[in-house]
Each structure stands twice: as structure tokens, then as C-alpha cells.
Design a protein around this nucleic acid. Sequence first.
DNA 1: CTGTTAGCGCATTCAA
DNA 2: TTGAATGCGCTAACAG
Lengths: 336, 336
Amino acid sequence: MVTIDDVAKRAGLSKSTVSRVINDYPHVSIKKKEKVFEAMKELGYVPNSSARSLRNKKTQMIAVLVPRIMNPFFGQLAESMEIQAAKHGYQLLICQTMYSKETELKHLELLKMRQVDGMILTSIENEWDVVKEYLSYGPMILCNEFEEEATIPTVKFDQIHGGYVATKHLIRQGHKKIAYCTGGQKSNVGQHRRRGFNLALQEYHLSFDERYGFYDAFSIEDGIRIFKHIHQMPDPPTAVFTGSDEVAAGIITGAKEYGVSVPEALAVIGFDNQVITKLMDPKISTVEQPIPFLAKRAVEVMVDRISHKGNDQEVYEYPLELIIRESTVSPIRAVE
Amino acid sequence: MVTIDDVAKRAGLSKSTVSRVINDYPHVSIKKKEKVFEAMKELGYVPNSSARSLRNKKTQMIAVLVPRIMNPFFGQLAESMEIQAAKHGYQLLICQTMYSKETELKHLELLKMRQVDGMILTSIENEWDVVKEYLSYGPMILCNEFEEEATIPTVKFDQIHGGYVATKHLIRQGHKKIAYCTGGQKSNVGQHRRRGFNLALQEYHLSFDERYGFYDAFSIEDGIRIFKHIHQMPDPPTAVFTGSDEVAAGIITGAKEYGVSVPEALAVIGFDNQVITKLMDPKISTVEQPIPFLAKRAVEVMVDRISHKGNDQEVYEYPLELIIRESTVSPIRAVE
DNA sequence: CTGTTAGCGCATTCAA
DNA sequence: TTGAATGCGCTAACAG
């Protein structure tokens, strides 16, 4: 392995000078600088990253915790962050918690052993009280998920508004019996969406029938299962608010199988604006989350925090936008 | 920051002893071992990973290069590898090349600067001659993609057979005019699929009409575009072999829009068996690639190579399986 | 069984 | 403007 010493010898200089050239220090004569570059090229030298990390106490790596990258939302978030991190000279270490407390904890240790300079949390499996203990080992920020009591930078979407506009849209299509599906009950993201949902209902003086609540909806299969349940209810809902496009797709798939027409007999709205929404027949109305913006800001805030800039209390909120397609609006009785 | 020295002092021992306990060496008295554990716990000590890496010349990190994690095939591959790597005590560093030569090269440097112990390539953007230069810096293996001239371990699917069974299936449904879609022309994966395609054609003494070849098909949008092209051809194909479920989904979406019935007027077969195949109407016939097996083996081979075990020439090949659904077989004239 | 010592490769004092 | 010396935190000889 070729080290900084080899380069120094080759260039007939000290390793301090070589180090200065590598790190682009001023006060190095052009001549010697060129000599160093030449020697580096000839030897194919590249600084050893472990040595650098040890010395600088910085690894130039940022970890991002996501439940799974195969979840389109988190996949896109991670992808955008990687690109963004690279622009700032950081490697992004994508860690999947697989919805497990233990795995999340294991990943949090990365901060303790200084394998990463900072950690971005996009979801939280453990109680905040246990997660916050890791704050003493390095900067942590929240992105997407949030925590009222947390005193760390947060970058999020306005989920209340998202839940509100989607629900309001259904109501304005004439629906009064609206079902509600959501994934993780604990998640504040989900809770805010629910708040928006309730807000819209209140505004139109509608009440929620508890039989219409489904609280373990994540996947396409869950959507199909929920449809079947709805289908055999005595007084079924006429519209469904779902927390994800996958669940919406599942409900539509189920409806198709049973010959129930969407949106005429059952309107369905998704969340995320994934590609699948444009592929299904009918195309799925949904709420778009501008993920790249969120990712960009999160990485910027993280980079600032690593260099002790920025404020711990900062909260950035991005708006959500309703996208109307075919799963909520019949082409015949289009209203909105 | 609490170091090994702090632990040693706290326990009233030398840091060598502490190190021995950390690394689970034999010949340490139970009593002192307990003392060390106690001190570690009290101080909340965790070894610094940069220091360990520098000293051991091992980072316990494996990099995997994928084009994009948002591509369902590569996303699943990366996800499976992460889980598998963790089982062996390795961190997986997922790197996206974004189909760019430069980005791939940038990621290859990780091996040179010893940031990772090994590198798994699932796709290749640059010429093999330039990639192979990095072999001198650490173990590299191929997983999914392959290279005839490469003398490194390879874990792959039997793509020839995959292309063959899919095409044969179409032929046996009575098709004689079969179109062929593929992504990256350079990829050996694609070339082998094509070989299988040709093999089936030959077996049934069919010839290929060059007008039916489409060589830039990656996405849903590409599929839609290809359908439109096919739709206005004077003597169009009656079936399409696609290299991906996304392209197949696009073609079906396009067909629907133009009122062309699938599979009656146009049969379509995908590749990968992604969830989307079960969601589309008609459900898409496809070829399943057992990704988790591939991922598991790749990580195992990599771990072996890092510890200088195994053979450079080993090639592991996994079979591909045809899955027949609705996009190739009319429920009325079912034959197979 | 345990402690002392010497680096791993690098960046940064401090002198010159 | 440059070089010599020091130490980041850890593991592995080598003694004892």
C-alpha cells in the first residue's frame, strides 16, 4: 500500500508538505506543489480514509435510517439524499431498520462508535426517550418523521394539510361515509394526517364511524384485505382515505375482482404519488410529497450541524399537493 | 470521548487486557474480564471504528454498486445484501452509479482508499479494462452482471435459459411475429437473454424481423412509447418479449389506451416478477429471478474473499423460472 | 495470564 | 515556506 511517506520520498520532500498539498493549504511553493502532484500520480496515491478519519475525528459519512429502501417513499428519499450528500463531499450510509426496534438501536450505535458524523432519522421505531440518548454522540436530525418534544432540527411535510385536502376533496365529491386507513399508529406523520382528516370532517359537520377505521394498512395485500372487509359491511363507506398508494392500489385491485366500480361505487385516494398511481386503472388520485426538496434540505441541515452551524430548534415544513385523477372523480359526474 | 485508556484506568488494568476482552481473546482471567466489562458499561465505552480500521486494515464494510436503488430489481438486491452482510458482521455501503461512468469510477475509488474491504458489482458502466485495474486494491466480485474475460468470482442467473423459456412460451401460444425489447445493449445480462430468445426462435424455425427490435427500453414510459410505435406498424408483431416488468406494464398501459386487447391482440411478457405484475390488468406473465438467493451467495463469497478463502474463478449460476399469468394467455384459448 | 511498547497513516503543532 | 516530532485510538508482538 502506498502511503504519504512514499509520496514524500518520491518527491524528495517531507510528508508534512505532502499533507499540505493534499489538503490544499496555502503557503506551499508552486514548484514543490507540482512535484508532489507528480509523485502522487506516479505512485497512484490515494489517502487512506481510516487514517484520515482517526486523525480528523470526521468520517465524511452520514447515516440515514429508513424502514426499508424497497418502500418507494423511503427509497426515493434515500436516493435523493445520496446524490445530495455526494455534492457536499459526504458518503451516505443507508441503513434499514426493517421496522425493528433492535435493528434501529444497532444502527444508532454507528454514531457512538464514530463511524458516521451524523444521523438522519426518517422514521422512529423506539421511544423518543431512548433515541435521544444518542444525541450526545453526534448530530441527529429528523426528516419526514418528527417528535413534538425533540429539540433537534426537523425537516418535514405539512401532513395535517395533506390529510385535510385529500379528505376535503372526497367530501366535495359528495361523500359522507369515508373510511380511514393508516399504517403505524405511533407515527406522528400518521397522526397529523388523521388530524387533517378530522379537520375536514368537522368543517363539513360530518362524523366518523369507528367501524371505518383500519389501522394496519401498509401493503397492497392489506388493501385487498381491507376491501374485502368493507365489501361485506352492512352499511359500507362510499370513499376511502388511505395513507399510501400501495394500499389504495390494493383496494382498487380488490374492488375490480368483486366487480365494484371505482370511483362510482367506491372512491379511493392514495398518498405519495408513486408511479403506480398512473398505472392503475382507474388512475389513482393522491397527495404528492416533493421528496427531493425534503432530502436536499435535510442533507444541508445535517452538513451544517456537523460543522456546528445552524440552530437546533429549526423546523422546515414543506407543503403537500393534491393530485386529482380517476379513482375519486367519475369522468361522468366530474365536479371539482 | 471515552477511549480504551479510560476503561483500562477505571478497571485498574492495562489497555492490552481491555483490548483482549473486547476482541474475545482466550487467556484472560474471568475476574479481570468481569472488571473490564463493568468499567466498559459504567463509562458507556464503544470502540472507535476509525482507529480499529486503521489498525486492523479492515473496515468491516462492503460496497455494492447498483445503478439505482429505485429500480425494483436492484433495490431488492441491495436490501437482501444488507441483511445478509449484517449477519456476517459487515456494513453494506450501497452506492448508486446512476448509470454514469464517472460516478461508477468515483465509487470504485472507495476500494483504493480502503474505505471498504470489498466491492460487489451488480452492473458495469465502464469498460472492463478500466474496472479491472481496481482489482489490485481489494477483492471485487460480480453479482448479476458478468464479464466473460473477468477472472473474479461471479454469482449470476441463467439468463440464457430465462430468455429461452419466456420466448418458447410465446411461441407455444401460437405467436410467430415476436418483438424484442431490452435495456442496455452493452450488458451481458441482456445479451444472454437475447441468446435465449434466438435459441427458442431457431428451435421453432422462426426468423426475427429486425423492425421488431427495441433497444432502449427501461421504463414504463419507454413501454408506452414502444407500444405506440408497434401500433402503427404495417405488419405488427403479435407478441412482445420485454427485458423488464416496467416495460411490459408500459406496453399494456399503452395498449389499454388505444383499445388493443392484451393478450388477444398483443401478448406481452415481462421479466423480474415485481409486484406490479400482479397489479396490472391483465396480470403480467414474467420470469422470476430469485434475488435473495443471489444476494446471499454474493455476500458469502465476498466475505470469503476478504479472508482470502475461496477461488477466483468460481461461478455460481441460479435458475430462472417462468411464471404464466394473463398477459400471454387468453383465459378463453388457454393452451399451456 | 498480563503489561510495556511500537506502530497503523495521517494532520498539526512547533521550530527553523 | 518547510521539516521534525507528536499523537489520534487501537491491536499485536514481545517480555515477563
